[in-house]
Amino acid sequence: MTTELPTKLSEIVEDFQALDEPDRLQLLLEFSQGLPELPQHLQEHPELLEQVVECQTPLFLSVDIDDSPEQIVRLYFSAPPEAPTTRGFAGVLLEGLDGLSSADILAVPDDVPDRLGLTRAITPLRMRGMTAMLGRIKRTVRAGQTS
């Protein structure tokens, strides 16, 4: 049984699945290159970011939940250029999840990283880094909901 993904994330997974392995890596690289800079308020206040220590390279994350009834989630990531794989995973999660409601994000299945078809090319350790990123986002959203 496959849990349904949010539309945007589902399209990204399909894009990856449609490619062969070298092109999947190329696509991940494009996500890495497309990861936007942090907005001004976070650049000036890095203490608002939390580090995802499960990633092999420094990844910083901020999860903002707004006051609307849907509790819309905005995501911000920061990772250095010498960590393109980490940046790529961050880019996928940003494009796939940013702007969704808290409920939609909590419903995202934890095995999404494995559905990108990268498990042969990328070491299990790194794949777990992406799973950890998703887990951290969900934990933060869950905490934000109950508070």
Partner: peptide, 9 residues
């Protein structure tokens, strides 16, 4: 490299 994408950058 450790990072599989680094060469491509």
């Amino acid at each position: 490299d450790e990072d599989v994408l680094l060469y491509s950058t």
